[in-house]
Design a protein around this nucleic acid. Structure first.
Lengths: 151, 151
DNA sequence: CCAACCTCCTTGACGTATCAACTATTCCGC
DNA sequence: GCGGAATAGTTGATACGTCAAGGAGGTTGG
């Protein structure tokens, strides 16, 4: 067992900064999205995923993978969103185990109403404070760590 | 009302990458920390905050601010941790409204046992995949957005 | 000096996330 | 084809996070 590789000062700044940045941005964007559109960020992410999909629907496992969510989390989330009429479950004809999540017209309307304000918030709280060089290096950093493009 | 300022391709990569990076790292580190030390990341953050404080204690509002948490969240969290013997509440002699959260010996032992493995995970999943230049620019990016050092 | 206001903290209700356990179906090697 | 393994999805219990409301103590200005 090797000695602990503690973080140096720069790494500590980067790591704590990263966690705090996410915490702060997420809290504020969640609040705004909820006030303006009555959606949580989780709702929003599901709606975006489905709205970009063919026929506005995806297999549950595909959507879960795309969001980097567990199947369980997605299942619970879809149950709640279904109860509010934002999405619908459909059977899969080619795999009887499978299920589709499908955007309803109300769900489509919700994401279309919410997106402009939300993106405005993302700009205001995040991109407006960064240079394009910083944006580029952040995009590359996430690819370095994740090993893939983020979608 | 101005037209929506949509995100361009690079911004989309950066933003979705940021969210996904946090999601993936947090999920994995949370899982490891829970398996190895029986702690959640929220537990860990509170324990770190207190362990770095004078006399291993802080006023609730100070700790909340330091973590960028709501008072409510911290109050619930401390209640749960108190029930497990990790922290203790103490009255504040100079302000009767106030309360201290104090690390117990068990809490100190828990953080000391958990830290090496957790930091090892942070290295393995994050810093080992970045150049020192990337670390530096991430640290600066967080400062740009937050406007302050992250502690 | 006291009424109005502000701050510190807690609580309860509800929405959200995780794990483990479970059902149902499909896949695969023989 | 059939038995075991793997996959898709759900569920229930529990932990976590947020909001709104409220109690109790400080602070301040007339």
């Amino acid at each position: 067992m090797a000695a602990t590789r503690w973080l140096d000062e720069e790494e500590t700044r980067a790591w704590r900064g990263f966690l705090r940045l996410h915490q702060v941005l997420r809290a504020e964007l969640e609040r705004e999205l909820n006030v303006d559109a009555g959606l949580s960020l989780s709702d929003y992410e599901v709606l975006v995923g489905l709205s970009e999909a063919e026929e506005h629907r995806l297999r549950m496992y595909t959507l879960a993978e795309q969001l980097a969510w567990s199947r369980s989390r997605l299942s619970h989330q879809v149950t709640r969103m279904q109860a509010r009429g934002l999405v619908r479950r459909e059977e899969c004809p080619t795999d009887a185990r499978g299920a589709f999540a499908t955007l309803t017209p109300a769900g489509l309307a919700a994401i279309e109403a919410a997106a402009p304000g939300h993106l405005e918030g993302v700009r205001r709280h995040f991109f407006d404070r960064l240079t394009s060089e910083q944006v580029r290096s952040l995009a590359e950093l996430t690819t370095s760590v994740l090993g893939v493009e983020p979608w």
